[in-house]
Design a protein around this nucleic acid. Structure first.
Length: 717
DNA sequence: CGATGTAGCACC
DNA sequence: AAACGGTGCTACATCG
């Protein structure tokens, strides 16, 4: 029998203590959909702890065991929630991944650029509007919250609020915005306290809402299953389902963070930011201006000082598309640093402002890591015995002291979080941890004692895909012969030669074919070579070139006509781009390269939004196709690798995949002297590279060894 | 006071 | 009509 399940929880931060207080289900009998529920268990209003009934938990387990398929909207969340709740009661929640179905994965596959929340999908696919249920529970919850906050709170209940120094909420670091959503347990509690009658709205609003979600999930899945089959997407969906246990285990294990190292960075940045800020204030004071420095970005005070004619009076370099205000972003600061006289007040001000902003951003990230991290008892925790009461009786219990140095983050990973196949990551985001020189926040991350990290990244995968697909020989040659001069496998150098032939030829005369590439890279490191890298990325991400005009790419290359030269040299790439634009305009989506082990005839459809005039932006189709193909490859890599790790972990869990940043995978392994894990790493590399066979091009993977920190490492393979 | 939009910056 | 793709997070500014 197929069932659907939905849980309502006291918040999203399950690992910080949020728990389900209501579990609802839907199922079918004689072509009729029925619903049922367990809970709503009482929530302690002072601690927000859920008091579940063990007999209910047993029933839920049995209900799951008896089902042949369980449907969830985002299974990872509900399964984690139930697991943790069961664990609170010394019970183990069990489920069978092969029975798990997901309306979220199905929704993305059916229409990648459409919202995948349950309310929207229920409206779109079933024509049912469940918004009234949400409106009702919102109204009830907000009413009840008023009893506990405001000017005259009657009770001292711990309602959800955004964390703040005045009123800290360490148990709900992600609470912000619509915080009422964390308090849906409150109406039934109030009804109980007030002894309201059994049918009072406070007693039923949450159950009605949740039951409606279970019902929607059940019906939605039946509908989606049919659509996926009709549209020939069933095989792809089944392959995608294999991701669920992989993501689950990654989130569960998390990444380890070193507090001492992060604090060291913090102290450095704090000092430097303070110094740069004082310099800015001093310069402003010289103009008799009382500058209010923003904590990040800009504020009115700063804008007035920088652009006001009576103060620094800088000419705007770029303006905002939306507001037309002069911009002060990184590009602009870089421009002013070149254009202004070194030593002038304006120059000093801009450089110091840039230095401050960068550091403040890093400081903000570090603060968020501290908000989210959790203590870990492994590995330098020490066992000790204590006398404790348990079940009303005293006894000696073994406890493990928590580490003072090592903490763990569990970023939330969303495999359907983007319009493409890229994942999103949040709370905190693990995909934007700086690796800039001098700002390498990855220094704070790495293997805990007794462990070691390895990272594997797909070499240049987003350039390889279009190169092989279009059969652009120069690029294929480049990738196949990474040790051959003059480019040594570097697309930047190939671009350099193409865009700046005069500079290249002069260097060639001077140092010869063997050395011309490295020479250009070295002596033009912060000028032409850097511009070339910037321009190359602009082109890779789909910059548009219009004849005779300086587009973004030419601007980045610092030379008019650069983009035209690249397009002429890489004519097949250009044809591929035009081909995908035509496909997107024709049918509304592009597809990833077909995977011959899944469906040799078609790939994953990635929908491209259209403008009001019905056309797809020409910068989108190739980019979506390439980005998503790379991520399909990554998905295959993760599924294969996890299967291998599961084998290794059959006896004792030791080998973990812990992080994914688009084309990079990070592994946390037990430490082995003399790189004793190398055979396993070679196996990982083979498994990852196997994805290339599936989509028909070579996809080499490079591995780096990180025995100490993620910031530094040794290239091994 | 909360919600919303914008800018800026970190990643690939 | 617009022309560089995909994200998340924080602070600032504004509005009701």
């Amino acid at each position: 029998m197929r069932i659907s399940l939905d849980t309502e929880t006291t918040g999203l931060d399950l690992r910080h203590g949020a728990r389900p207080f209501l579990v609802t289900t839907a199922f079918e009998e004689d072509s009729q959909v029925y619903t049922d529920y367990w809970g709503q268990w009482p929530v302690d209003p002072y601690t927000r702890k859920v008091r579940a009934r063990c007999s209910d938990l047993v029933k839920i387990q049995r209900w799951m065991d008896d089902a042949t398929e369980y449907v969830f909207q985002n299974p990872k969340f509900d399964l984690t929630a139930l697991s943790l709740l069961f664990a609170d009661y010394g019970m183990t929640f069990r489920w069978d991944w092969s029975k798990v179905r997901d309306t979220l994965l199905a929704g993305h596959l059916l229409k990648s650029n459409q919202p995948h929340d349950l309310t929207t999908m229920t409206l779109v696919y079933l024509g049912i509007n469940v918004q009234p249920y949400e409106d009702e529970i919102k109204r009830c919850t907000v009413e009840c919250r008023r009893m506990a906050q405001g000017r005259n709170p009657q009770y001292n209940w711990r309602i959800a609020k955004e964390d703040s120094p005045k009123d800290p909420r360490p148990e709900m670091p992600s609470a912000k915005g619509e915080t009422w959503k964390n308090d849906m347990w409150l109406p039934s509690y109030v009804a109980k306290v007030m002894d309201y009658h059994q049918d009072h709205e406070y007693r039923i609003a949450c159950v009605d809402y949740s039951v409606s979600d279970s019902d929607s999930t059940y019906r939605l899945y039946g509908h989606m299953e049919q659509l996926l089959k009709e549209r020939g997407l069933w095989c792809i969906y089944q392959e995608r389902l294999k991701l669920l246990p992989v993501v689950y285990q990654m989130e569960q294990y998390g990444v380890t963070v070193n507090k001492a190292r992060l604090r060291k960075l913090r102290d450095e940045y704090l000092a430097e930011s303070g110094k740069a800020g004082s310099t800015c204030l001093r310069i402003a004071k010289d103009y008799d201006y009382n500058l209010q420095l923003p904590k990040s970005g800009r504020n009115g005070s700063l804008t007035k000082f920088v652009f006001g004619s009576q103060y620094l009076g800088l000419e705007p370099y770029e303006t905002s598309d939306k507001t037309g205000d002069p911009s002060l972003n990184k590009r602009c600061k870089e421009h002013y640093e070149v254009a202004l006289d070194e030593g002038s007040p304006a120059y000093e001000f801009i450089t110091n402002l840039g230095a401050k902003t960068k550091r403040d951003t890093a400081l903000g990230y570090m603060a968020s890591y501290e908000r989210y991290w959790l203590p870990m008892s492994f590995p330098d925790g020490v066992e000790f015995n204590v006398l404790e009461m348990a079940n009303g009786k005293p006894g000696i219990h073994t406890r493990i002291r928590q580490s003072d140095t090592w903490f763990r983050l569990h970023p939330s990973l969303n495999a359907t979080g983007t319009d493409t196949l890229r994942w999103s990551s949040s709370n905190p985001n693990e995909q934007n941890i700086s690796k800039k020189e001098g700002f390498n926040l990855r220094y704070g991350f790495g293997p805990a004692p007794g462990r070691e990290w390895w990272s594997g990244d797909a070499k240049n995968i987003e350039l390889r895909i279009p190169a092989y697909e279009s059969e652009q020989q120069e690029l294929i040659e480049l990738f196949e012969h990474p040790d051959t001069p003059p480019y040594y496998g570097s697309t930047h150098l190939l671009n350099f030669h193409t865009v700046y032939p005069d500079i290249w030829d002069a260097a060639l005369k001077k140092v010869g074919l063997e050395k011309v590439g490295p020479y250009c890279k070295n002596i033009y490191a912060s000028s032409w070579y850097q511009y070339c890298k910037n321009g190359g990325f602009a082109v890779q991400y789909g910059a548009i070139e219009i004849e005779g005009k300086e587009g973004t790419a030419d601007k980045a290359f610092h030379r008019l006509g650069s983009h035209a030269k690249l397009k002429a040299r890489f004519d097949k790439l250009e044809a591929l781009n035009n081909g995908w634009i035509a496909v997107a305009n024709d049918c509304g989506y592009v597809e990833t390269l077909p995977d011959k082990t899944v469906d040799p005839d078609r790939g994953y459809p990635i929908w491209c939004s259209r403008s009001r005039h019905g056309h797809v932006k020409p910068t989108i189709p190739l980019n979506y196709h390439v980005q998503s193909t790379a991520m399909w490859w990554m998905m295959k890599a993760m599924i294969r690798v996890q299967a291998y790790l599961d084998d290794l972990n059959a006896v004792e869990p030791k080998y973990f995949m812990v992080c994914q940043v688009h084309d990079e995978l990070v592994f946390d392994f037990p430490y082995r002297p003399n790189k004793g894990n190398m055979p396993k790493i070679r196996k990982l590399r083979r498994l990852m590279e196997q994805g290339g066979d599936d989509i028909g091009l070579p996809t080499p993977v490079a591995f780096t060894y990180h025995p100490e920190t993620w910031a530094t490492g040794e290239s091994i393979l």
